[in-house]
Design a binder for these strands. Sequence first.
DNA 1: GCAAACCCTGTAGTCGCTACAAGGTCAAGT
DNA 2: ACTTGACCTTGTAGCGACTACAGGGTTTGC
Lengths: 156, 156
Amino acid sequence: MLIGELARQTGCEVETIRYYEREGLLSAPQRSASGYRRYNAEQLGELNFILHCRSLGMSLADIRQLAAFKADSSLACDDINQLIDQQISKVHQQVESLRLLEQQLLALRDRCHDHHTVAECGILQTLVEASEGEPCVCHTPFGQDPHPHHPSVEKQ
Amino acid sequence: MLIGELARQTGCEVETIRYYEREGLLSAPQRSASGYRRYNAEQLGELNFILHCRSLGMSLADIRQLAAFKADSSLACDDINQLIDQQISKVHQQVESLRLLEQQLLALRDRCHDHHTVAECGILQTLVEASEGEPCVCHTPFGQDPHPHHPSVEKQ
DNA sequence: GCAAACCCTGTAGTCGCTACAAGGTCAAGT
DNA sequence: ACTTGACCTTGTAGCGACTACAGGGTTTGC
Ligand SMILES: [Zn+2]
Ligand SMILES: [Zn+2]
Ligand SMILES: [Zn+2]
Ligand SMILES: [Zn+2]
């Protein structure tokens, strides 16, 4: 199986497969006389493992870890559980901060209903006023502390 | 006001301020004889505007757009509303997919309770089985379609 | 014998910063 | 006058997880 066929079977782009190999996630495949990569069922499994973990939002570093555990099955699995727990709490935090963000955006959106000129747009007014130090609907929707702004979302 | 003072007043890192200037988001400030950037209240407002928008998850491209609107206030504000609407729907989608992700991770986590060896770890077993084409708890928790996996989270 | 479809390597771009390195400037203390 | 340290400057490279070429080689079918 050539790389294009593997890509078709997994739905993964050819360039991404080569990238995973470069990153040491996928073991280097055999090569044909002309240098083409030849894959077998084992590497199909390897790639599907990676894609499955990626679809669970895991980083490539996490996946490398998991693959190492897979290789040495006599180890204790506490580290696996911890890895998943960390992933869960990371995702949970992201959900929470994005939900807050959505509320803030909805409050901001509520400042402009009809279409008129920019000069009268409540959204832009709110944003400008906030930049001048006044409290804003988006960040103080329910009478919370006015400012500071920054750490609403930690990573995007 | 020098760049360090501006950084202190806004909570923004010095390097980030220079980056915003390079990206054309912040207007180039006056310079002292020795080349030091000197800021005034106007640029403090500009930077706070950017930081406020960033804290709402907007991209620098979006902020550039908003700044352009701010400059020409005779335009119709429909584009502003549309920009915010897009931001809302983007964030909403992220929330939804991350919530699904959290459920999937919790289902996976549920496969391993006690600490034992990797060979017996239900989490790793599930991941390996899924990579061999079998349905997995994480992606089919309530009897949904088994596979395909990929587009669970679109951007991270 | 030639075109299309595939494959290869290597490099650079994406986004929003962050972290240097290598140097210049300025105010205070000795 | 000299030194220390805090500040400032530019430029470049790195992060993560790809994506998009450029510039070539190979294979297949007609
Ligand atoms: Zn409006
Ligand atoms: Zn606000
Ligand atoms: Zn376990
Ligand atoms: Zn799954």
